[in-house]
Nucleic acid binder design. Structure first.
Lengths: 346, 346
DNA sequence: CGCCGTCGTGTGAACGTACACATGGACCCT
DNA sequence: AGGGTCCATGTGTACGTTCACACGACGGCG
């Protein structure tokens, strides 16, 4: 007979027990990998599970253990696309390996929508939280919301605000920005502009800080960064504005999409990259190697971040304590969008 | 006193009942929006809920109703990035509005990983399934897996295989491909090559069929499409190969990433776009408007697809029946990567 | 004036599992 | 031989909610 036959009800632990000729508790033990069980009995139970098509009821399990085995993921839609997508996928795989699942909630940027996202997460009884796209306002909302969970944030500056309960883990944005800037300086650029992301966005801010630090370290003039969204559209508009000023020989963009917009604007206005101006991006999305020209950028290992963040958070659930800040070094990918400045700028 | 104070246990329905001076069943009725309840009592219960910080236990609810209120989403990592990301976000919002949540599982392309993904979905007791990235092998695996759920697939050709239980809903890929091809033909191109996606990928296949149909409709010579991954890397390699052949004046790429790779290859080999060759993409990802040159492409309303698919699937859960195939028309975005063919090709 | 229907509310059971504890047998040590 | 220990397995109960049903009060109607 087919496994799913019989009455409409799904088989439960007692059906399996009856089939195997043991008590339901024995089945439960097999399910939970208890040691104290005779291999022969275990085998019989396993066969009964197979035969009946039994599948443990997560709801019942969650109810009695008061453990949801769910990790909440808070992501912002804003910064959609490659990075978060890759991280979340890696997180999902890592979570599944440890018997956890993910509750992914994407939120807008307004305070109200963040609160609402936290609400949804709480109603799913998540045991821990990973904040993928850390904005300052997200943390403010979390502080306010009196929810007390192990929290991993994918940035490198918040962790000291909630000692013991918060763990930061991330690619070192600050260092990445310094690498990008240093690369331009080593090529001979002395007038470098930064097109930055929104400043309430922690990563964007760190990239800017890294940029500014490296500039002052080398006694170079600091010009105010241009602030905007992390999109190609904004990069394009910023590029047009920059062309009018013409007071720079290199631009460091806060991400690759912005850099693409800059490339577009510069081409439209007759500026050659890297002949007239050099451009560096951040992220190394798969398309970046095919931009015209192929983009010099800072590569982040998104998958590693996703994987590790889940490991950390599961560790925190089990042990109750979180470690310190960890950082992954990014890599500079030098391609064709950077070159020494034109003679006029040396 | 703070809402979360007291013993370690979270407040339950009985605590609320005691606080409001009613029975637990009355609280349950308020929670479920029952009609038969005096407004005054309801008010009192609501206040007690507020005061105690009560939050209904989803696990208990799921256990007794045997309803998980979870919609499974099966996505493939392969085709990561913009489209799926946008759809899933829209789905999540739409689901939350109706009190559902999403269980997103991303799978690789091997049969084993698809089976494993379905397994994970089943263990989460999803009530319905939306297949975001439909591959032929996914449906084969679903057929084999004896799981019987309302199923919405985001493509337009599978739906008649499981009448009544499956609903297809999608942007009309076939029509989109015809629009793109027709655009090239109207510009005067007579030798058009298609760089196609993997053929076990239903959408990619439909795009190819649309392309082929439009060609034969216009009595144009059909050259074998180049098959490969939907990535810029592959587009680049295909582009290099195409340049060697030089037997075309236009290329229709199966997605924007591929088109970007083509642009890169053509530039590397000294071919001007659209001067020497025209290029059309598919998807209209946000970057496409900033490619060099800005890409003519077919826009899909991903958010609408995501939203509607959840509506359909929830309707199916409630009523038990699914409607017929629905299609959304895409839009052709004409930008600068297409122009009439050079004189030699007319 | 008694009956019935309706409204608002309460009581008992059930969902499927894991935990705490109980049981019975085999074995070892003294 | 007796007691203690460990092993393998079984029994009772609790988790928090909803469903089916029961119940009292009230009003309308014959």
């Amino acid at each position: 007979m087919p496994p799913e036959a019989g009455k409409g009800r799904a088989p439960n632990i007692r059906d399996v027990a009856a089939l195997a000729g043991v008590s339901y508790q024995t089945v439960s033990r097999v399910l939970n990998g208890s040691e104290k069980i005779r291999p022969e009995t275990k085998q019989r139970v396993l066969e009964a599970i197979e035969e009946s098509g039994f599948r443990p009821n997560q709801a019942a399990r969650a109810l009695v253990t008061s453990r949801s085995r769910t990790i909440g993921v808070l992501s912002t839609h804003q910064h959609a696309h490659f990075g978060p997508q890759t991280m979340v996928h890696a997180m999902e795989v890592a979570a599944a390996e440890s018997g956890y699942r993910l509750a992914v909630v994407t939120t807008g940027t307004t305070a109200a929508s963040i609160v609402e996202a936290l609400e949804r997460l709480q109603s799913q009884a998540v045991e821990a939280l990973v904040v993928v796209a850390p904005k300052v306002s997200v943390f403010e909302a979390i502080e306010d919301s009196s929810l007390d969970l192990p929290l991993v944030t994918l940035d490198s500056s918040i962790h000291n605000k909630r000692p013991g309960r918060t763990h930061s883990f991330a690619v070192d944005q600050y260092e990445g920005a310094r690498m990008a800037t240093r690369h331009l300086i080593e090529l001979g650029h002395r007038s470098i502009i930064h097109v930055a992301g929104p400043q309430d966005w922690i990563e964007a801010d760190e990239r800017m800080q890294g940029f500014l630090y490296e500039l002052s370290e080398n006694d170079l003039p600091v010009r105010a960064p241009i602030l905007g969204e992390l999109s190609a559209d904004f990069g394009y508009r910023a590029g047009l504005e920059l062309v009018r000023r013409r007071d720079f020989s290199a631009v460091f963009a806060a991400n690759d999409h912005m850099a693409l917009g800059l490339l577009h604007a510069f081409r439209d206005e007759g500026l050659s990259v890297p002949g007239d101006v050099s451009v560096v991006g951040f992220d190394d999305i798969p398309d970046a190697a095919h931009y015209l020209p192929p983009l010099t950028t800072v590569r982040q290992d998104f998958a590693a971040v996703g994987r590790r963040s889940v490991e950390i958070v599961i560790g925190a659930i089990d042990t109750g304590s979180l470690g310190a800040l960890e950082l992954i070094r990014p890599t500079l990918m030098v391609r064709e969008s950077t070159a020494p400045p034109p003679v006029a700028w040396r």
